[in-house]
Amino acid sequence: MSTRTTVCALLLAAAATVSSVLPAAASDTPPAAGASATSPSWMYRDSHVSAPAALKIAQRTLAAAKAAGQRVSVAIVDRNGTVIAQVRGDGAGPLTMESAVRKAATAAHFCTPTSVLAERLATNPGLRDLPGSLFLGGGVPVPGEPTCLAGIGVGGAPSGDQDEAFARAGLSALGK
């Protein structure tokens, strides 16, 4: 038997094994949470903010900061913390980019504003050790169904309260 024939036989055997383990999709079974009506029950589809929407959020955020005389950076991440859009505003400091991403990711992961999470550190200091998280004001979640769609993070204003106000202004670009 040639190597090619052996590889093909192994692939066919593996495919048969996998298909025998997967449940058959029943047409009368409603889709699982996160699955669409046209997806098999074993497939999960995720939703997040589109790139054009993320850019609108960033523009609205930077406009609010500029109106307040602040130089900030903004990041919009999906619920997994992957950057959708990120802008360093004119004159924003070099560390503002990373803090904006980390605040956005923290807000998205917990689906809670980072200012609220910062208060929880008093009773749960172990939260501080979560990699990639930043528990300072300035991150707000983008709510969705069944879970958060994204997070918006802002860094660079003198206080987390101001950063959060700018993030909320960005969120208003989505009518939320």
Rank of each mutant, 00 (worst) to 15 (best):
residue 6 T to H: 07
residue 157 A to C: 03
residue 22 L to S: 04
residue 149 L to K: 00
residue 110 F to R: 03
residue 38 T to E: 13
residue 126 G to A: 11
residue 71 R to D: 15
residue 113 P to E: 06
residue 76 I to G: 01
residue 151 G to H: 05
residue 170 G to P: 00
residue 87 V to M: 08
residue 146 P to T: 01
residue 111 C to A: 12
residue 10 L to P: 01
residue 174 L to F: 03
residue 127 L to N: 06
residue 53 A to G: 04
residue 39 S to Q: 14
residue 117 L to Y: 05
residue 151 G to W: 00
residue 71 R to W: 03
residue 48 H to R: 06
residue 37 A to Q: 05
residue 127 L to G: 05
residue 139 G to W: 10
residue 139 G to P: 00
residue 160 G to V: 04
residue 171 L to E: 00
residue 134 L to Q: 11
residue 32 A to T: 09
residue 123 T to I: 11
residue 154 V to S: 13
residue 130 L to S: 07
residue 78 D to S: 01
residue 85 A to E: 13
residue 81 G to N: 03
residue 21 V to T: 05
residue 105 A to S: 14
residue 51 A to V: 12
residue 126 G to L: 11
residue 148 C to R: 00
residue 175 G to T: 03
residue 103 K to Q: 08
residue 1 M to D: 14
residue 33 A to D: 13
residue 135 F to V: 06
residue 102 R to V: 10
residue 119 E to G: 06
residue 5 T to I: 14
residue 44 Y to S: 09
residue 123 T to W: 04
residue 68 A to Q: 02
residue 77 V to S: 06
residue 111 C to H: 09
residue 93 G to L: 14
residue 142 V to L: 07
residue 170 G to S: 01
residue 96 T to Y: 03
residue 93 G to D: 15
residue 159 S to H: 06
residue 27 S to D: 14
residue 125 P to I: 12
residue 96 T to D: 08
residue 108 A to G: 03
residue 94 P to D: 06
residue 16 A to N: 00
residue 174 L to E: 01
residue 121 L to K: 09
residue 7 V to K: 02
residue 151 G to R: 06
residue 139 G to N: 11
residue 156 G to F: 12
residue 93 G to I: 13
residue 37 A to N: 02
residue 165 A to F: 00
residue 60 R to W: 01
residue 68 A to W: 01
residue 30 P to M: 05
residue 115 S to I: 09
residue 101 V to A: 13
residue 155 G to M: 09
residue 25 A to R: 09
residue 72 V to P: 04
residue 127 L to V: 00
residue 93 G to S: 15
residue 101 V to Q: 15
residue 29 T to I: 07
residue 52 P to N: 02
residue 110 F to D: 03
residue 171 L to S: 05
residue 9 A to H: 10
residue 93 G to H: 13
residue 168 R to H: 02
residue 67 A to F: 00
residue 53 A to L: 02
residue 67 A to H: 02
residue 152 I to V: 11
residue 43 M to C: 08
residue 88 R to H: 01
residue 38 T to Q: 11
residue 125 P to Y: 11
residue 79 R to W: 02
residue 46 D to N: 05
residue 54 A to H: 03
residue 55 L to A: 02
residue 1 M to K: 11
residue 1 M to V: 15
residue 47 S to L: 11
residue 41 S to E: 15
residue 133 S to Y: 07
residue 165 A to K: 01
residue 20 S to K: 13
residue 112 T to A: 05
residue 143 P to I: 08
residue 158 P to H: 09
residue 29 T to E: 15
residue 136 L to W: 08
residue 25 A to H: 10
residue 102 R to T: 14
residue 20 S to D: 15
residue 81 G to I: 06
residue 145 E to P: 01
residue 17 T to E: 08
residue 27 S to Q: 12
residue 86 Q to Y: 13
residue 152 I to R: 00
residue 98 E to Q: 15
residue 75 A to G: 07
residue 147 T to N: 08
residue 13 A to G: 05
residue 77 V to H: 04
residue 88 R to K: 11
residue 158 P to S: 11
residue 53 A to P: 00
residue 160 G to N: 14
residue 71 R to E: 15
residue 155 G to S: 11
residue 137 G to Y: 09
residue 144 G to C: 05
residue 122 A to K: 13
